[in-house]
Design a protein around this nucleic acid. Structure first.
Length: 628
DNA sequence: CGGGCGGGTG
């Protein structure tokens, strides 16, 4: 940083004492016809050319297109435009200044192109997203190379072309280029290897990416952050954390890119302990005020169940943008705090920020929590009429959810029928849940059959439908679905809950036996049950089918994974901290009322995250706005 | 004179 400032200082000083370069704005005539008697300075042509090139390079660094053009005129005056070195610098200058057409014109007009000329042009095209053109030029380059002027390509070419392929996720080309690099013995170059690694990760071949990473002898900062980001992109969050840790151990300084990726990993795992540690690390490293990192921190805290922490991070950011606002609004929406979400939406207008389509997904999500059809419709209209945004599938999914939860299942169905998209499984799933909760058997069957078409392997859908039959006392149908589930290959994901206590994650399954303190946990749970039953709690077992034999059903229901996690949390956590329980499936009716009562008799705040939504239980009630 | 990494959404 400092050295580049000093360098720039030198150039400025040079400019001030050489005004003739600045005044030489070329006219069309001049560009066509180089002057016969151009002034050649006394210290010789060579020195003059060198100075011109230096200025052009400084123009490239500073993005100064006007002065760059002036120098271009000088180049033409001096008849230097066929000089390969100067023309290369010109191509680079124009492309760094964003004048792609000028760069291409100079490139096309060059009588002799060197390897660098091709590399610069291909690199530019790849950088600005002209992927196809970059690849076309690469092929041209290979053909010309065969004529023997220079080696067909270099490490520089490869990394640029790989970058172009990455944008297209062109796996076949990637593999060809990998073979190319091995043949040319360029696969050990850190730039080429990192670009290959990144491309494999982007195409989902994370194992290939990792084997490149492991085989590299020297890895740069970029190599590390590409690998970490690759894991995160492929939802391999634990692997990302392990790699991050490995970097820490060898004393690697993590940069803003690896930090933001790793926060995403923590968010994806709902890992608050690790998230807190990363927060400390990034604060020490001085990334605390980076808006990208702040946005992902907010999201991470919200997804870990810590909306207060998320809000504190939000308040600490001075210059807010739309994305940052979206993060906090989405957090409040997930945590069933629609008022806060809507107030923040209003704040955006006051601060002169424009909401985007993501903002409206978040706000509509908040409406579905509060169960306000009226507000939902209001925002849906607002985004179309006031902000000229066209609703996408997610907005329609929110509306289907809002209408369904409010009991307007037929209207939700009509919306699905008339929207300009194919219905997604999440829409039918939402509609099916709503039909179950509002007892609409006919529509439930319709929604379920659509779901079975889209996700035949997901047994959860069949369980959901059988619960609708159970709620309507259609026992023959319940039995039929159960038999189908037994015979078919479809598998229901096993319910699992986990809780973080004192730097450790404790995970539980239904009827868990393996936890070291399992006896104490069942004991604690039994005592809570007794107290609750005295208060009138009855385990709700009729409406939920859990694909187990009915003899064990009653017993197993007592031992739902989230209840075990809760009992353990009550035994081991510090007395006033909120209990944060994570669950991989939707919380059931029985557990929901159990948690309400538990919050009442223990006086503790209980937070349960099910499918990306949070239920805050305090004093015997829940914030979620669902009717149970 | 040229090259590889980035944040938010049911």
């Amino acid at each position: 940083m400092i050295s580049s400032c000093i360098h720039r200082g030198k150039i400025r000083a040079f400019r001030l004492c050489c005004p003739r370069y600045l005044s030489a704005v070329p006219t069309a005539q001049e560009l066509d016809q180089p002057l016969k008697n151009s002034p050649v300075p006394e210290d010789g042509v060579a020195a003059h050319v060198q100075k011109l090139n230096q200025i052009l390079q400084s123009c490239a660094r500073n993005g100064d297109a006007i002065e760059g053009k002036a120098c271009h005129a000088q180049v033409i005056h001096l008849g230097l435009h066929s000089d390969t070195l100067t023309a290369n610098i010109l191509v680079n200058m124009y492309s760094k200044c964003g004048l792609l057409d000028y760069a291409r014109k100079v490139f096309d007009g060059m009588p002799h192109r060197s390897l660098v000329s091709w590399n610069t042009m291909i690199g530019t095209l790849a950088r600005v997203g002209e992927d196809q053109e970059a690849l076309t030029l690469f092929i041209q380059m290979l053909r010309r190379g065969k004529e023997g002027a220079h080696a067909p390509f270099s490490e520089f070419t490869l990394s640029s072309v790989l970058c172009a392929c990455a944008a297209k996720c062109a796996l076949l080309e990637c593999k060809q280029l990998h073979a190319f690099s091995v043949k040319a013995m360029m696969d050990e170059n850190v730039f080429v290897a990192t670009a290959l690694l990144d491309l494999y990760a982007k195409c989902g071949l994370i194992n290939d990416a990792n084997s490149i990473f492991e085989s590299m002898r020297d890895r740069s900062e970029v190599t590390w952050s590409s690998m970490i980001a690759g894991y995160v992109r492929n939802e391999m969050y634990e692997e990302a954390l392990v790699l991050f840790q490995r970097g820490q151990v060898i004393g690697l300084e993590h940069n803003q890119f690896s930090i933001s990726a790793i926060i995403c990993a923590c968010a994806g795992l709902a890992a608050l302990i690790e998230g807190n540690q990363v927060h400390a690390i990034l604060w020490k490293a001085g990334f605390g005020s980076n808006i990208f990192i702040a946005s992902s921190l907010i999201d991470m805290y919200a997804k870990c169940g810590s909306i207060r922490e998320a809000y504190i991070v939000f308040l600490g950011v001075e210059e807010k943008n739309t994305v940052l606002m979206n993060s906090i609004i989405s957090g409040f929406a997930k945590h069933a705090r629609p008022t806060e979400a809507m107030v923040l939406y209003e704040k955006m207008q006051q601060m002169g920020m424009y909401p985007n389509e993501v903002t409206f997904v978040c706000v509509l999500n908040a409406c579905s929590h509060v169960g306000s059809v009226q507000k939902g419709r209001k925002y849906f209209d607002l985004m179309i009429k006031e902000y000229n945004l066209s609703p996408n599938v997610l907005h329609y999914a929110c509306m289907v959810d809002i209408l369904g939860r409010a009991g307007l299942v037929n209207e939700a169905y009509d919306l699905i029928a008339q929207m300009p998209f194919d219905a997604t499984s999440s829409m039918w799933g939402s509609l099916l849940s709503s039909c179950r909760n509002h007892g609409n058997l006919d529509l439930a069957v319709v929604a379920a059959s659509k779901l079975f078409e889209i996700e035949p392997e997901n047994a959860g859908n069949h369980v959901l439908l059988s619960n609708v039959y159970a709620a309507n006392k259609k026992w023959a149908e319940v039995a039929r679905v159960r038999k189908f589930l037994k015979d078919s290959e479809a598998k229901k994901e096993k319910g699992r809950s986990w809780i973080e206590i004192k730097d450790k994650v404790h995970s539980f399954m239904v009827g868990e036996r393996n936890h070291p303190r399992i006896a104490d946990i069942y004991d604690k749970l039994d005592r809570m049950m007794e107290e609750m039953e005295r208060m009138g709690y009855r385990a709700e077992t009729e409406h939920d089918l859990h694909d187990v034999d009915s003899g064990r059903k009653q017993e197993l229901l007592k031992h739902h994974s989230e209840k075990l996690a809760l009992a353990f949390g009550l035994m081991c956590s510090s007395p006033n901290a909120p209990l944060r329980i994570m669950k991989n499936l939707r919380i059931c009716v029985d557990c929901h009322s159990f948690m309400k009562l538990a919050s009442s008799i223990t006086g503790r705040e209980i937070i349960v995250r099910d499918t990306n939504r949070f239920h805050h239980f305090t004093d015997g009630s829940c914030s979620c706005g669902d009717f149970w």
